[in-house]
Design a binder for these strands. Structure first.
Length: 595
RNA sequence: GGCUCCGUAGUUCAAUGGAUAGAAUAGAAGUUUCCUAAACUUUAGAUGCAGGUUCGAUUCCUGCCGGAGCUACCA
């Protein structure tokens, strides 16, 4: 609840006491923004109060409105439409708001570390192929949610767990060994993650050939998949890895190293980072240890073949495997271990896992298993489940080559930005390096905004054609508006908040912007509660719409003759610019001075 | 089959149980002697179907229809 709403609620409670003789609390007073088609700034919904007033909605609203106008300095005027009491807030209130927040670089943010410690896990890729569009959504979301939680006052640790071991990387290793002829990122001039991914694809192709061959010889498909020599070799390699075979480990380290180099440049371009990395190859054994410890207190049981299970039937779920018959650990085991280590190292209040909604069940089970093991902190585990990214052609499938590669996509966005910028030709006075930087800023801004403006929980469609259209509700639209604002401030200089009068009239266009700006701190809070960068993106878009309308439909500020209006508008411009930088910063989008 | 999530203009997205369901894009019509036209202004167009709860339902409940995901000794 905003300060304005709090103060109005106080007055409202007084009004109800005076008019209807009953005490109420804040919860009965429902505030909302006044819709654009009506006069007023903030609206009280009076329906819930009819029980107390025992009068019609109109009469109730009328009476409260009159009381507020007479008794509150904030309320300048009011009107009633059905059960809605629309209040006009005094100019002094808006001017004071402007005065207090212009030049505040952290407008909208809470003081750092004023709230609990939290952890955000995101990205967490496999190391056998390069990152794709799905990872982009994951990374942008994770990074942004971490920013938002930090802005809300939390101390935030960003981590990821890298799935660096398993059959997937063995497949790439085997294919490279057999068909690679010693190819390296240097010799092929290919990013390491792409090179390793290439051999993952080669494995799949050769494997399919073998299956087809076996089927021709009369074997059924199921058996052929199991009996194909390549698959057997890959599994053999995995066993050797687990045994610590020096040769396999060396190859594994070499190829993972290539992948990490590739990932590092991709992460850098994405603009994301981490405070700590966990590697599955380190944590899977710890998970196994932890699980075995809990076998002793009877929580777990063994099947005849020696596999270890937990019974979740009392929670309405199936039994879950924690250790295979051969004693090796599964994904769940490893996540249990990682969670315990994290608690030991960081002791956070909440652990957020940014992972796709295909794993809803997994995280439900993970939290449950840990709680059953007696870890109270496990209640703080929250799966930030986001929807899949689909293409117009349907689902992305790596095997069918329909994945959109992250590096390619980022480069394409930049090229598009460059092409459009050059066509428009507004970059006089910028040197080539500055232009390159700008193209990157615009391309990445477009991409991040395109992905983050959608509610994370919802499945989204990525249409490549629409993503390179930089008009309308897009990142470049917001960047463009910022550039316009900065241009005004460069030419006219900043306004002076000390010269903002207290009693002067304020034009509607100015009030519209001030109302919109006033919302920002609450939007940040709401975004933190919902873990939704989309709320920030949509807010920024609304603010920009309002600003552009103001910009285009009022007298140009540079030509404004009234010093008082000019000064106020310059202050508003400054605060809009700052708010846009703060908001877009939360979703990882940079704003240019010129474009 | 069981469990979970989702169905809003042609399309992509919005809408703490509240007013006449907002934008963008595609369509139609306009705006540059004026701070950057990646903009602004006007116009037309949507809640899958049937019930229920409520003063009030896109939102909550039930059923149906349609789509996605999970239901691995993969991660």
């Amino acid at each position: 609840m905003s300060e304005l709403e709090k103060q109005l609620s106080q007055s409202g409670i007084e009004a109800i006491q005076a008019l209807f003789g009953e005490k109420t609390d804040e919860k009965q007073l429902q505030w909302q923004q006044t819709r654009k088609d009506f006069k007023g700034d903030i609206t009280l919904v009076v329906f819930p109060l009819l029980r107390i007033s025992k009068k019609s909605p109109e009469q109730t609203a009328e009476a409260i409105g009159k009381y507020l106008k007479d008794h509150s300095d904030l309320v300048e005027d009011f009107n009633v439409v059905k059960g809605f009491l629309n209040l006009s807030i005094s100019a002094a209130f808006w001017l004071n708001f402007l005065k207090e927040n212009t030049s505040l670089s952290n407008f909208g943010f809470k003081s750092p570390k004023s709230k609990s410690k939290v952890m955000v896990e995101y990205s967490s890729p496999n190391t056998n192929k390069p990152l794709h569009l799905g990872h982009l959504r994951n990374n942008f979301l994770g990074y942004s949610i971490a920013n938002i939680l930090e802005a809300e006052g939390h101390e935030v640790f960003k981590v990821q767990i890298i799935n660096d071991r398993g059959i997937h990387i063995c497949k790439s290793m085997l294919a490279w060994e057999k068909f690679g002829n010693g190819e390296t990122p240097e010799s092929s001039n290919m990013k390491g993650d792409h090179l390793v991914g290439k051999y993952y694809v080669i494995f799949d192709q050769k494997y399919k050939e073998e299956i087809a061959q076996l089927q021709e010889q009369g074997m059924d498909e199921e058996a052929a998949k199991k009996e194909a020599p390549l698959m057997k070799e890959a599994q053999q390699m995995l066993r050797k890895w687990e045994e610590g075979d020096a040769e396999v480990r060396a190859l594994w380290e070499k190829m993972n190293g290539w992948v990490y180099d590739g990932f590092a440049s991709t992460y850098q371009r994405m603009g994301v980072d981490f405070d700590k990395l966990y590697y599955e190859s380190d944590t899977f054994l710890i998970g196994k240890e932890k699980v075995l410890e809990h076998e002793k207190n009877g929580l777990l049981y063994r099947k005849e073949d020696g596999s270890l299970w937990i019974d979740l039937s009392s929670e309405g779920l199936d039994d879950k495997l924690l250790l295979r018959a051969d004693g090796t650990s599964v994904y769940m085991t490893q996540d249990i271990g990682t969670a315990i280590i994290r608690e030991e190292e960081f002791a956070c209040e909440s652990y957020y896992y940014v992972v796709g909604n295909e794993q809803d069940y997994h995280f439900k089970v993970l939290a449950l298993v840990l709680q059953k093991m007696g870890f109270k902190w496990a209640k703080g585990i929250q799966h930030l489940s986001y929807g899949m990214v689909d293409l117009p052609s349907g689902k992305m499938k790596s095997r069918e080559g329909t994945v959109v590669d992250a590096d390619d996509l980022m480069e394409e966005m930049k090229q598009t930005a460059a092409r459009i910028s050059e066509d428009l030709g507004k970059l006089d006075g910028m040197n080539d390096a500055e232009k390159e930087e700008l193209y990157e800023m615009i391309g990445m801004g477009a991409l991040k905004y395109f992905i983050l403006k959608v509610d994370p929980k919802k499945q989204m469609l990525f249409n490549p054609e629409e993503s390179v259209d930089f008009n309308g509700n897009t990142g470049p639209f917001i960047q463009y508006t910022h550039a316009r604002i900065q241009s005004i401030l460069r030419k006219a200089g900043k306004g002076n908040v000390e010269n903002l009068g207290h009693s002067e009239a304020v034009e509607n266009e100015d009030v519209d912007l001030l109302k919109s700006l006033y919302l920002f701190p609450q939007v940040v809070t709401e975004a933190a509660e919902q873990k939704s960068p989309a709320l920030i993106a949509n807010y920024a878009y609304d603010l920009v719409k309002t600003f552009n309308s103001f910009y285009q439909n009022t007298t140009p500020i540079l030509k404004e003759e009234s010093e008082s209006i000019k000064n106020r508008r310059l202050c508003i411009c400054e605060l809009v610019g700052q708010t846009l930088r703060n908001a877009m910063g939360l979703i990882g989008v940079k704003l240019p001075e010129q474009m």
